[in-house]
Amino acid sequence: MKTNNTLKGVSILSGIAIFLSFFVNYVSPAGIALIGQWDESQGAIRAKTKAEKVFDESEIKDVNIGKAVFDRQIAVFIDARSVEDYKDGHIKGAVSLPVGEFDMKIDEFLNKYPPDRPIVTYCSGRTCDDSHRLAEMLTAMGYLHVSIMIDGYPEWQKEGFPIE
C-alpha cells in the first residue's frame, strides 16, 4: 500500500512536470524545437530556438565560400571568440568583438562600419554558437548583411588560408 502511494505520487508529479515542460516550451520565446540540430555534418550544432530560425539562410556552410567572400575584400570578418583566442591567432584583418563584451565595444564598431557593410562572423567551429549570437546581436543593431561562417577559425587555419 505504501509503495503504491509512493508510485502514485511519482506518476502525478512527473505528469505535472511533463505537461508544464511542453506547455512552457511552447509559449516561451526561449523555447526550443522538439528535435535539435545535433549533426555536425549538417551545419553548426544547436537546439534551434524560435528566435534563430532565420539564421539558417545566413550560414556559410563551406569554408571555401568563406574564402571567396574574403578574397572580394568587401566584407569585414568579425571574431566572436574571446580576446585571448583572438590574440593567439585570427583570420587576417578580422576584428575582435567577443559576445561577452558586445555592449562595451558596439558603439565604436557602429562608428567604424556602416549598416550596409557586409559582415561575416565566426568562432571556433560547429560546436560553438557565439558567431550565431553575435550575428543575431548585429542584426538587431541594424546591420543588413550578416553571415556566419560556421566552420570558424580552426577549419580556416587547417585550409591554410590567411591568418595573422
Partner: peptide, 26 residues
C-alpha cells in the same frame, strides 16, 4: 532537446513538492 525540455521541469516540480510537502516520499 526532449531531455533539455523535460528535465528542468522534473527538477522544479519535485523540488517544489519537497518544499511544500506534497508527496514528499515520491
Amino acid at each position: 532537446n526532449l531531455i533539455a525540455i523535460i528535465v528542468p521541469f522534473i527538477e522544479l516540480t519535485a523540488g517544489t513538492a519537497l518544499i511544500t510537502g506534497v508527496y514528499p516520499k515520491s
